[in-house]
Amino acid sequence: MEKLLVAKVSNEIDVLMRVSGIIRRKGFSMKSIHMEQATENQANLKIMLSYQDKSVDQLMNQIKKYNDVYEVSIV
């Protein structure tokens, strides 16, 4: 299954490491990843997730917890 994760995040590389790190640890694969500065402090992050037999809600709940992730959803 493939789904697009869209997030508003802090405009720092750290957040990319945190988010990609948890995606890896929960056993998901990525098809593509794109991060682009939106404002001085914010960036838009888009990741195409690929997975089987997993709950994407669990992953979302983890990602939501980071201080530098402001909004996250699955499109």
């Binding site: 709950s55 809600d57 669990q58 709940n61 983890q62 939501k64 917890k65």
Partner: peptide
């Protein structure tokens, strides 16, 4: 208190 624990 941690939503990510529920149903994990």
């Amino acid at each position: 208190i941690d939503g990510s624990e529920i149903g994990k």
